[in-house]
Amino acid sequence: MAPGARRARCREARMTASPTPAASAKPRLTTSAMIASIAGEGQRTKPAPFGHALVEAARTRPGIVGMTADLGKYTDLHIFSKEFPDRSYQMGMAEQVLFGAASGLAAEGFTPFATTYAVFATRRAYDFIHQTIAEENRDVKIVVALPGLTSGYGPSHQAAEDLALMRAMPNMVVIDPCDAHEIEQIVPAIADHKGPVYMRLLRGQVPLVLDEYGYSFELGKAKLLRDGADALFITSGLMTMRAHEVAEKLKADRIEAAILHVPTIKPLDEAAIAAAAAKSGRPVFVMENHTVIGGLGEAVAATLLRHRIQPAAWHHIGLPDAFLDAGALPTLHDRYGISVDAVTARVKAALG
């Protein structure tokens, strides 16, 4: 079996739910532990926004090249490779080689977009990124699939601590997009930014949410999506999507929640965070698809301390400081408190 087939077979493992006796006549339901969709039932989606956006960016930016470590199909880079085969590099199952080569291409004036899974960039190739890309301030864009708890395949593939690791690296811009609309805007923005970028990726059929707010991405800027007097949600990534759904549910109880979306984790928009949190009388809920250690929550807490802001109450919703279980994503999101229902229940309990 070819190496690519081996990896695909391993990382696309299916987890099958056994039917109950009463449901035995019905078709068996399966859910992918690796890349199950995070879209809710009936939610609007867009296919492969990163791959298509990179193709469009590359049409007017001849220096863009695509690189991957045997995961082009699973990071949507295969769309770019089909359009620009002479500007695409398959490095095999060798993430350290991937980032070393990307640094070399950047040194020669190219803009590499290097894709892999988040765990392989942040854990397997961290030193190569640190020494050959960040220290040299090379123009490499690191785009990673399966961030946080978006894989049910267990600790080997769950990048629950990736933001903490990359935030600590000098020169590194760190971005956590919410949806397809934002990813499409981020790609040309980071292509034009000179220097290393770490971008989390939602791939496949990616939900659409932010277009409902007329949102536009700006590197380093947080955006207030909606205002509300009863609570403030400070969020990034897919948790902004969840915050939107939670806020809609809370309206039925006449609870109005504000949402401050913070896609750029580093550099952090401290001014926007401080301004939103300074509004008196409403508790702050930071929500992130990341361990509670070292991510958005602790960055926001440090910001409020520096600006001497004390909100009415402080709540941090994130993944525990633990190795997470394997299983189907809906089950895991409920178990670890980042599903819509789990977050709604926690907010209601906190508000009394």
Rank of each mutant, 00 (worst) to 15 (best):
D227A: 12
A48T: 11
G294S: 11
E245Y: 14
S280V: 11
I255S: 00
P263K: 07
K26R: 12
R11A: 14
G297L: 00
A13F: 05
A125Y: 10
G92I: 02
L232H: 03
K26W: 02
A102D: 04
G66S: 13
G297C: 02
A101Q: 03
M34D: 09
A350S: 14
S81Y: 12
V209A: 11
A159V: 10
S18N: 13
R7A: 03
H261T: 05
I64E: 07
L29I: 14
G352Q: 11
D253K: 13
A36R: 02
L163Q: 15
E248I: 06
I273P: 00
K26C: 10
A231R: 04
H316Y: 14
A229I: 12
H307E: 08
P47Y: 04
A58S: 01
P47L: 10
K82R: 14
D227T: 13
D227M: 08
S216Y: 14
T45V: 10
T303I: 02
R226I: 02
S81P: 00
P188V: 10
R7D: 07
L260N: 03
R9P: 01
A277Q: 05
S32M: 13
N137P: 06
A349C: 05
E12V: 01
A276T: 01
S216A: 13
I133F: 15
A322C: 11
L351W: 00
R123K: 13
D70L: 08
A274K: 10
D176F: 03
E95D: 03
V292P: 01
L71P: 07
D86A: 15
E161G: 02
N137E: 09
V55L: 06
L319I: 09
